[in-house]
Design a protein around this nucleic acid. Structure first.
Length: 565
RNA sequence: GCGCUUGUGGCUCAAUUGGAUAGAGCAUCAGACUUCGGAUCUGAGGGUUAGAGGUUCGAGUCCUCUCAGGCGUACCA
């Protein structure tokens, strides 16, 4: 249900009838219940243009506004706000439609586009660490969201599998003379050991350098070793994705190495476009207004990550046909992407109408506001963090006796992982955020557990209710009215979240919805004695729609729900 | 130095993109149970939105300056 749009249409209609020849401002949600459900603030803005008092304009709009359909009541307030109350019968009917519909009456986009979402992007030489968490789950949420709304989403996991370090790593792997499963169990250790060997032994170092050249020139033996290394390393990532309930598979991997053969043509194309310049022996593109150029080829002929990114942009726009390309990458790389996007457009690698965006996010901090590290200052492995979340969740489960061991295990997984993801997604992605176990595993406030609790409570009602859910929703009081309007807002929220690529708009909405439901639940009994059948059914239907909305919202965030908690 | 970015109650975060009296949670204090799941709900106190100017009907949001933090700044990714 595109609620806002429906109201906007009514306003537009009123504008026409009132012969106001302007495009009205969009309505917004009322800031307070006393102000109705929605408010129109456009009268003030028109005051100067039309040379009239805003309240006069507002009155004119209201006179011409249809009060027999969506809108039940309006009033002029303050300098010229129009407060709008929606028609309870209309709201109820819309909720009924949503409740009956698998997609909660949310239509797929009429004009879907192809969107590339580039996220996660782990480095194969190392294990995934906490720094990869945000990219992985924010990107996954965006991909889920756009898919749900009807776009054709192409997930791209741009893994780092190319570069000089791999010569050293595969040379060391070969020397270990085993299938790699043991020594590669801990990639950090393996890297350290390889580096130690590299520094201590000149012959080994020579061999490592030789292997770099060999991989890049397609030597079969070295490529096989490299492939083996990548397979094992990628396997570690997949373990993390599995635990995180993230929808990334091997099919989504389009590694740096994939673009290797395109790099020379990136340079020659830039040259033929006339944007290439030599500076200090390196091949550069100088952008207007920037002092430092984008270096695309080093003095020694080697390529850089800007080169690979340009190749990837070209591929995504032209071969994959993307109209929107979203990079979910740390905010610190903002400068890099700004430049690369500019070069890509200037060189004609990407058509003008393709939207390129850097979905930047802040750094994860510890309680003291410092970058998140282990006690001895090392990076925290993501897998360790997730395992710890499950352990902590298990400890937090009450009444463990009433569950089997498997059930506790399954429950702890969903709760623990869900808590980590929710806590991250609930925060405006651009700001740094403070990682706090106690807060994220709390049942109070805007947490995944509060949401899970609300959901489980509704499921509990339906376990007790052994009838057939029929009848229809009747708005009985102010609280039910607010709850119903909130439920109908879901699509607007999702659209906005998709537009801005900001998952926290979804979490904020879900929290408001759950809070409102809890109040409704306390105040309006369903299964208790003395509740009339009609009222009971209406309330059950509202509860059911709330549960479905929470479930769908969490599903987009990649968080599972449980029926019992 | 230059560039980007952030600054909102004691703490952690919101604020529908310029709208009305800046909202939540935690913490503090005070209430509500023969619990449709109290892991809940109701209420109270707590704010010069870092500071100073400006733009306009209207500013946490836009502009300028100042202060304080973070990050980036030519051949790593």
């Amino acid at each position: 249900m595109k609620l806002k749009q429906s109201i906007n249409l009514a306003i537009q209609d009123a504008f026409k009838k009132a012969e106001i020849n302007e495009t009205p401002l969009a309505v917004s949600e009322a800031t307070k219940p006393e102000f109705g459900d929605y408010q129109f603030n456009g009268a003030m803005a028109l005051s100067k243009k039309l040379g009239k008092n805003p309240r006069e304009i507002a009155a004119n709009i209201i006179e011409n506004l249809d009060h027999s359909g969506i809108i039940a009541k309006t009033e002029i307030a303050g300098p010229g706000f129009i407060n709008i109350w929606l028609n309870p019968l209309w709201i109820a009917a819309q909720c009924d439609v949503a409740e009956q519909d698998e997609r909660l009456n949310i239509q797929r986009k009429e004009n879907p586009i192809k969107v590339v979402v580039d996220y996660s992007g782990p480095n194969m030489a190392k294990q995934m660490h906490v720094g990869h968490l945000r990219s992985t789950i924010i990107g996954d949420t965006l991909a889920n969201l756009l898919t749900f709304l009807g776009d054709e989403v192409i997930r791209q996991n741009h893994i780092g599998d190319w570069g000089t370090q791999f010569g050293m790593l595969i040379a060391y792997l070969e020397e270990q003379d085993e299938d790699g499963s043991v020594s590669l169990k801990d990639l950090e250790q393996f890297y350290k050991d390889a580096k130690g060997r590299f520094d201590a032994n000149a012959d080994f170092a020579d061999k490592a350098r030789e292997y770099v050249v060999k991989i890049q020139s397609g030597d079969t033996h070295c490529l096989n070793l490299w492939q083996k290394f990548i397979d094992i390393s990628l396997g570690h990532c997949e373990e993390v994705y599995e635990k995180l309930n993230v929808n990334l598979t091997r099919d989504d991997v389009r590694a740096e190495s994939f673009y290797n053969d395109d790099l020379a043509s990136v340079i020659s194309d830039l040259d033929s476009k006339g944007v290439l310049q030599e500076s200090d022996g390196a091949q550069c593109v100088f952008l207007e207004g920037d002092e430092i150029p984008v270096i695309v080829q080093k003095g020694d002929g080697g390529y850089l990550y800007a080169t690979t990114d340009l190749a990837a942009l070209r591929f995504r726009a032209n071969v994959l046909g993307a109209k929107r390309i979203s990079y979910v990458v740390d905010a610190r790389q903002g400068g890099h992407f700004k430049q690369v996007f500019k070069v890509a457009k200037e060189a004609g690698f990407v058509p003008e109408d393709v939207k390129l965006e850097h979905i930047a996010f802040g750094t994860m901090m510890d309680k003291g506001g410092k970058p998140f590290k282990t006690r001895d200052g090392g990076t925290v492995k993501l897998i360790d963090l997730l395992d710890e979340a499950v352990v902590k969740a298990k400890a937090a489960i009450k009444d463990k006796e009433s569950y089997s061991e498997e059930e506790v295990e399954a429950l702890a997984k969903i709760i623990g992982i869900g808590a980590v993801k929710y806590a991250d997604l609930a925060i405006n992605r651009e700001s740094n955020y403070i990682f706090n176990w106690d807060k994220m595993l709390s049942f109070d406030g805007n947490t995944s557990l509060y949401m899970q609790y609300a959901y489980a409570r509704i499921q509990s009602i339906f376990r007790r209710f052994d009838g057939e859910l029929r009848g229809k929703i009747i708005i009985g009081d102010a609280l039910e009215h607010r709850l119903a309007v909130m439920l109908l807002r879901f699509e607007d929220v999702l659209e906005r979240a998709a537009e801005d690529a900001s998952p926290n708009q979804i979490t904020t909405y879900l929290y408001e919805l759950a809070t409102l439901f809890m109040r409704f639940y306390e105040q309006n009994p369903m299964l208790k004695e003395g509740v009339e059948e009609e009222t009971k059914m209406s309330r059950l239907l509202l509860a059911d729609l709330t549960a479905k909305t929470i479930k769908q919202g969490l599903d987009i965030l990649g968080i599972q729900v449980v029926n019992k908690l």
